[in-house]
Simulated assay, not measured.
Amino acid sequence: MKQIILWSLLILPWASLFFLKMDTVRRYMPVALFMTVIHTLAYQAAYHYGWWKEAGSSLFGWDKVVPVPWVYGAYLVIVIWIFHFTFGKFWIYLIVNILLDGLFMYIIYPIWQRMGLVSGESTLPTIAIVAMMIGFALIIYLYQMWQENLFKQPKENL
C-alpha cells in the first residue's frame, strides 16, 4: 500500500497538468524546476546537518536523502498550480502558501508519519520548517517576477 501511495504522489500530480493549457505549464515550469532545485538543496543540507530524515519515502533505494515522489512529483506540480491561480496577486499567493505549508506540516505530515510514509525524525521545530517553506515561496515568487520581466524585454538585434 505504501508503494502505491508513493507512486501516486509521483505520477498523479503530473497527470493533473493535462487540465491546464500548455502555455500555462510552459510559463510556470521554470519556477517549478527552480523550486525543485531549492528543495533538493534543502534536503541535502538537512541530511548533512541532521535537521531531518525522510527514510520512509524512498521509491528507488537511491533516493534516501530527497523524497522523489514528493519533491519531483507532487510539490513540483503544486507550484505550477499555485502560480496559475495566484501569480500577480502577491498577498493571495502568500496567504495560500502560508495556509498550505501549515496544513502540510501540521496535518498531512503527521498523518503520513502514522502511515509510515515519512520518518518524522527532525531536530528542527515544525514552525522553523514552515518558515523555511514560506521563505522558499518568497524566493520563487521573486524568481517568477524576474522570469516574466526577462521575457517581456525587447529582443536586441545582433
Rank of each mutant, 00 (worst) to 15 (best):
S16W: 02
W7P: 01
G50F: 07
T123H: 13
V79P: 00
R27E: 12
I5T: 09
V31N: 02
S119M: 09
W62Q: 03
N157T: 12
I134C: 09
A55D: 13
E54M: 11
K2D: 08
G61D: 04
V65N: 01
T86C: 12
L138G: 07
K155G: 09
I82A: 02
P125Y: 08
K152H: 09
A55P: 06
K53G: 09
L41A: 15
E156C: 05
L100N: 01
M132K: 05
W52G: 04
V68G: 04
Y93I: 08
L20G: 04
L124M: 15
A32C: 06
A46Y: 03
K64Q: 14
Y75A: 09
Q113L: 15
P13M: 00
Y72H: 15
F60L: 13
L99P: 05
S119C: 06
I139Q: 06
H39T: 14
G61S: 07
P110D: 11
G116C: 03
L117I: 02
W146L: 11
F151N: 10
G56L: 05
P69G: 03
Y141L: 08
A32S: 15
S8Y: 02
L142M: 14
I98F: 07
I140G: 00
L9T: 00
I107V: 15
I82H: 05
A131S: 10
D23G: 04
K53Q: 14
M145A: 13
F19H: 10
G61V: 03
L138R: 05
N97W: 08
V130F: 02
W51G: 05
I129V: 14
G50M: 08
P69C: 06
F83K: 04
Q153F: 11
Y141R: 04
Y109G: 06
Q3G: 04
F151L: 14
G73R: 00
G102H: 08
D63A: 00
W51N: 04
V130H: 01
P154Q: 11
T24R: 08
P125Q: 10
I107Q: 11
S57K: 01
E121Q: 13
P69M: 02
I111H: 03
F18Y: 12
A45T: 11
Q113F: 10
W81L: 07
V68E: 01
Q144T: 05
A42R: 05
L117H: 02
W14T: 05
Y47C: 07
V77N: 05
I5L: 06
I140Q: 04
F104M: 12
G56M: 02
I5D: 01
I78Q: 08
Q44R: 12
I4Q: 07
V71Q: 00
E156L: 12
S16M: 11
Y72M: 11
T40D: 02
I11L: 13
R26Q: 13
L10G: 02
G61H: 05
I111Y: 06
I4Y: 15
G120T: 03
K64V: 12
Y109M: 14
V79F: 00
M22G: 10
I92R: 12
K21H: 12
G120M: 03
V130P: 02
V77R: 04
P67L: 02
I134L: 11
P110H: 10
L103D: 03
Y109P: 00
Q147N: 10
N157G: 11
L76W: 13
L117A: 03
